Simulated assay, not measured.
Amino acid sequence: MSSRPPSPSSPAVSPAAAPRAAAAGAANVVLDSETLFAGQQTVLIRHQGEVYRLQKTRQGKLILTK
């Protein structure tokens, strides 16, 4: 898989800046998966009071489960 630089319509945003960008009305926030996972295989995401698990597979794909 090749890594493409973000387009002007979807700028890369650091995780620390993501809430500010979303609050400012940014149309598309792009988070790098390696930054999001921080060396782990799984991250938990709370969305509207529910917890979801985002997991990397051995093939490098992502699985989101509730």
Rank of each mutant, 00 (worst) to 15 (best):
V13N: 07
L31H: 06
T65Y: 07
V51I: 13
G49P: 00
G25E: 12
I45A: 05
A18C: 05
R53M: 08
G25P: 09
E50R: 05
K61R: 13
G60L: 11
P6F: 03
P11M: 14
T57L: 04
V51P: 00
S33F: 05
K61L: 09
P19H: 05
L62A: 05
L62V: 08
Q41V: 14
S2K: 10
A21Q: 01
K56P: 07
L64C: 06
S7L: 12
A22C: 14
R53A: 10
A12N: 13
G60N: 06
L44E: 11
L64Q: 04
K61W: 05
S3R: 12
A21I: 03
A12D: 13
L54W: 08
R4V: 14
L36S: 03
K56M: 14
A12G: 15
R58H: 11
P6I: 01
L64V: 02
N28H: 10
T65A: 02
Q40V: 10
A24Y: 00
P11G: 06
A21D: 08
S10F: 02
A17C: 08
P19D: 01
N28S: 12
T35P: 05
R58K: 15
V51K: 01
A17S: 12
H47G: 05
R20Q: 10
S14M: 07
R53K: 09
L31T: 03
A26E: 05
S7D: 14
A22S: 10
D32G: 14
P19G: 09
T35A: 14
E34H: 10
T42D: 03
D32C: 14
K61S: 02
P8W: 08
N28I: 14
K56A: 04
T35W: 08
L44F: 07
T57W: 02
P19T: 02
R58T: 12
L54P: 09
A23D: 11
M1R: 11
L31P: 04
L44R: 05
D32N: 15
I63N: 01
V43D: 02
M1N: 15
V13A: 00
L54I: 09
S7F: 10
R58L: 15
I45C: 03
A17Q: 06
A22E: 07
A27C: 13
Y52N: 06
G39L: 10
S3L: 15
P8E: 07
K56V: 15
A18V: 08
R53T: 11
V30F: 07
S10R: 11
S14F: 03
P19Q: 00
F37S: 04
Q40H: 07
